[in-house]
């Protein structure tokens, strides 16, 4: 790890100014991924601008009936917040599906969005990686890639985004509030993360010295929502595939549906094709299967991860069926040992 200077900003503008003046700097929030990557040598900032004590840890209901989640809100506080648990259960479940109790106590909402892929080549500075060193190559494409992308990948990069939280936020139409040297702007969460294309070193559309200030949720969709994650270990592991969904069924037909996949792509994968296929359709397993297949038709699995396509389909059907049979109640039963 390279030596670095440290400064703690007094307010958001000072933090942004500090970074604007120092292009080799980064913001320090919870640090759970940043410190990890610094130890690995994957990132080597010369300056850490500590934003963890800025007043960004607020969760409040918005005038429009939505929810404002400050970027400094710790994962555990987000998952435990009564409004999140009752109105956006998929989000609470997704956050709780990630990492460990210790990490959730430290990691922040903003940092969670900005965490980097766990592709093993990205994390190994002794090997090529286009995301870490543009132009050096992607050994994952023909190498060890069981965990990696089946949708939206490129010749240059087959990484997946590791966040659980972001998958739920994608399904829930969250908006990211950013502030930078050029002022404030908002970006839909589904546009915040990028597909790798020719520039896999860019995970998101965030600009230099821009700070994630908050994530805003619109009012929750009618009906229920849920999140289900499949991983090798029963806990404390990144997703092979995960599904966040919200479903409203009226008179046996799908009135509204939101569906997003984790573990399949370089970004949380909002399944708009599946949603389109489902709206107005009968809320049956057959419809759910057809819709999932419609979404996953675009999949281009790698040598060792074709199973993810089937797993994603089965999981989507399972989650949607659960939501449908519960008549929109906000729970998706865990598919493991009872």
């Amino acid at each position: 790890m390279r030596r670095f200077a440290y400064t703690r900003a007094d307010d958001v503008d000072a933090a942004i100014a500090a970074l604007a003046d120092h292009p080799d700097g980064v913001f320090l929030g919870g640090g759970t991924n940043l410190v990890d990557l610094m130890k690995l040598g994957v990132v080597s900032p010369g300056l850490l601008v500590d934003v963890s004590r800025l007043p960004l840890a607020e969760i409040r209901e918005t005038a429009g009936g939505g929810l404002w989640i400050g970027s400094g809100v710790r994962n555990s506080d987000l998952a435990a917040h009564p409004a999140v648990r009752t109105r956006y259960p998929a989000l609470s479940q997704a956050v709780l599906a990630g990492a460990s109790g210790q990490i959730r106590n430290t990691a922040t909402t903003g940092g969670n969005l900005l965490q980097r892929t766990r592709c093993l080549y990205f994390q190994d500075v002794g090997k090529p990686c286009n995301k870490r060193v543009p132009g050096s190559g992607c050994p994952a494409r023909d190498g060890v890639h069981r965990d990696l992308a089946v949708l939206g990948h490129s010749e240059a990069c087959v990484a997946t985004h590791p966040s659980d939280m972001a998958v739920a936020l994608a399904a829930l139409d969250a908006v990211v509030h950013l502030r930078g040297p050029g002022g404030e702007r908002t970006v839909d969460l589904t546009d915040f993360h990028r597909l790798p294309g020719d520039e896999p070193h860019l995970d998101t559309v965030i600009r230099p010295a821009e700070l994630v200030v908050a994530v805003e949720l619109p009012p929750p969709p009618a009906g229920g929502s849920g999140y289900r994650k499949v991983r090798d270990r029963a806990s404390y592991a990144f997703a092979l595939v995960s599904v966040a969904a919200a479903l409203e069924v009226r008179d046996g037909s799908v009135q509204d549906v939101r569906l997003a996949f984790g573990g399949l792509a370089h970004k949380p994968w909002r399944a708009r094709a599946a949603e389109g296929a489902l709206r107005g359709a009968r809320a049956t397993e057959e419809s759910f299967t057809r819709a999932a297949d419609a979404e996953l038709a675009a999949a281009e699995p790698l040598r060792d991860n074709a199973f993810k396509v089937r797993l994603a389909r089965n999981l989507a059907v399972r989650v949607l069926s659960g939501l449908a049979s519960l008549g929109g109640a906000a729970a998706v039963t865990e598919g493991t040992v009872s």
Binding site: S76, A79, A80, P82, R85, T86, P89, S92, Q93, L96, A97, G101, G226, S235, A331, V332, T333, E334
Partner: peptide
């Protein structure tokens, strides 16, 4: 202390009633 404060876990969130 987290449980005492009402913080859910992944298994609580999937099965439990109101917070």
């Amino acid at each position: 202390s987290e449980a005492a404060a009402g913080h859910p876990s992944y298994v609580t969130s999937l099965t439990a009633g109101p917070p």
